[in-house]
Design a protein around this nucleic acid. Structure first.
Length: 473
RNA sequence: GUCCCCAUCGUCUAGAGGCCCAGGACACUACCCUUUCACGGUAGGUACCGGGGUUCGAAUCCCCGUGGGGACGCCA
């Protein structure tokens, strides 16, 4: 059997982390089994769906590299088909018209709640043998309800949660078409999953309650029931539910924050799924390993620290050229002009193992290209009088030293030794003067990636400053 | 309220009756490396929600409790 999975977001907002994981698992399962991954936009709620949200979802999936084989299909473009199926169901008696108004329904639900009952439609317009239905009010539009089986249980073997059984008595007759004739979510899903030949429905936990209803409709339609896998939810770092008001962010915000898509993907894959002790793996490895039986049924808390660790790892190991172009874009966005020397490639080689994200890398790369003004407090702290002589000594030898880190390192050592000082006495002033930062890579390697004149310039600029009354500029 | 789901270190998880007085990873602490800070290396602390069963034996199976979550829309 050809595996067919789908990701079916509703375009009412951006692609958030939970949706991204659902998409990732659906995608990976299809890839694992050489199946097909389908993207379907569930935009039947005309009031809340927006083209911007559709684009945001598409952008998010593209950034993550979750490519789909079919689609995107839009439910709003399949309306005639849904209407036809509703007509068939009406004719077959598996659906019926209900003339109850929203107000009446509200009142009914309130009463039921007041009595401690589960709010549900009471079936007053449901045709039964021997039952006399009320007379339909003239000129009043009707909704169409599904005639849910009254007895028995609906059961399915959930691929992550195991067997779930729900009594039909718990289910009421849900509306499948609104008074204006448009079909509702639960109905469209069923028709689409059926006609698109979906074999595995991988979706969020919050749909567990919809599943028995959908199975019943599927059965009324004589359709094959797909297999279901319900993923538990992702909680915020504080253990609270992620919502628009609380912590739910677009995957694109991770891009802005300097994360690499492979880090986000690896992190997400590991959130709720495991393959023994494996922590770091590529998506192609993931697609070889991924099966539904190692998905945890319990909710998982999002942990930014671990994501950071993965991101730092990928930053260290990505292809240098790709990293360079990613970084160049970020620097240019800041208005920084990337000069030919020191080369971005050299800066990256020196720093990529030391930063957690692309923005941090941009922060350190930037100092090589801007008009540097080291902070006064740092100058005061590290450019102490005892360092002046050794610094001048170093500067004096600069024009003659071979321009590579080994020779520069040797020169630094000679200078400190001559002045009877420890290494940091020269290394720290150099760091501050050259980058304005207290933490840099090995100072000899740092000096070496600059053009010689630029080092001279940055070092001398402050050698003048030290003659100023405050000792710093 | 009713129905459904979930429950191992702070966090993500391994674990499918003996291999577990519970393993890995992130984070944390200490030490090593060292030219600062990272990286890396080594070591360490911290967990089976509670109570009953079943069994020679339970983190693993069953029941109850507790806690958390989800759903109950002419939203998806």
């Amino acid at each position: 059997m050809m595996i067919r999975t789908r990701f079916a977001p509703s375009p009412t907002g951006f692609l958030h982390i939970g949706g991204a994981r659902t998409a990732l698992f659906s995608w990976a399962y299809a890839r694992r089994h050489a199946g097909s991954f389908i993207l379907r936009i569930e935009d039947t709620d005309l009031a809340r769906s927006t083209p911007e949200a559709v684009q945001a979802i598409l952008d998010g999936m593209q950034w993550l590299g979750l490519n789909y084989d079919e689609g995107p299909f839009y439910q709003t473009q399949r309306m005639p088909r849904y209407r036809a199926v509703i007509e068939e169901m009406l004719a077959a008696g598996s659906a019926y018209r209900c003339y109850m108004t929203p107000d009446e329904l509200d009142r009914l639900r309130e009463e039921q709640r007041a009595q401690g009952l589960k709010p549900r439609y009471d079936g007053r317009w449901r045709p039964e043998p021997g039952k006399t239905l009320p007379t339909p009010p003239v000129g009043m539009p009707a909704v169409v309800r599904f005639r849910n089986p009254a007895a028995g249980v609906v059961a399915w073997d959930d691929l992550v949660k195991g067997r779930i059984e729900i009594a039909n008595a718990e289910l009421d007759d849900l509306i499948i078409a609104r008074a204006d004739g448009t079909p509702t979510y639960n109905f469209c899903v069923v028709v689409d999953d059926w006609e698109m030949g979906i074999t595995h429905v991988i979706r969020g936990d919050d749909h567990v309650n919809n599943t028995p209803r959908q199975i019943n409709i599927l059965q009324a339609l004589g359709a094959q029931v797909p297999l279901y896998a319900h993923l538990s939810m992702i909680l915020g770092g504080d253990g609270q539910k992620l919502s628009k008001r609380h912590g739910a962010v677009s995957v694109m915000q991770y891009d802005d924050a300097g994360y690499l898509p492979e880090a986000v993907l690896n992190y997400l894959a590991r959130l709720g799924w495991s393959h023994g002790d494996d922590e770091i793996f590529s998506m192609s490895q993931f697609c070889e390993w991924f099966e539904l039986d190692h998905i945890t049924p319990s909710a998982a808390q999002f942990n930014t620290e671990k994501l950071n660790w993965l991101n730092a790892h990928y930053l260290r190991t990505v292809d240098p050229e790709r990293l360079e172009s990613l970084l160049r874009v970020r620097l240019e966005a800041r208005g920084v002009t990337v000069a030919a020397s020191p080369s971005l490639a050299a800066i990256i080689a020196l720093h990529k193992g030391r930063v957690g994200n692309l923005n941090e890398l941009a922060n350190v790369a930037e100092v090589f290209y801007i008009d540097l003004q080291p902070k006064a407090e740092l100058l005061a702290k590290h450019l102490t009088p005892e360092t002046f002589a050794v610094l001048s000594d170093f500067v004096a030898h600069l024009p003659d030293v071979a321009w590579e880190s080994g020779a520069i390192g040797a020169l630094i050592k000679d200078c400190v030794a001559r002045h009877g000082l420890k290494m940091p006495k020269l290394a720290m002033p150099l760091r501050i003067l050259l980058t304005g930062l207290e933490q840099t890579p090995s100072v000899d390697a740092l000096v070496a990636i600059f053009p010689r004149e630029m080092v001279l310039k940055r070092l001398t600029a402050v050698s003048e400053a030290r003659h100023s009354p405050t000792g710093c500029s």
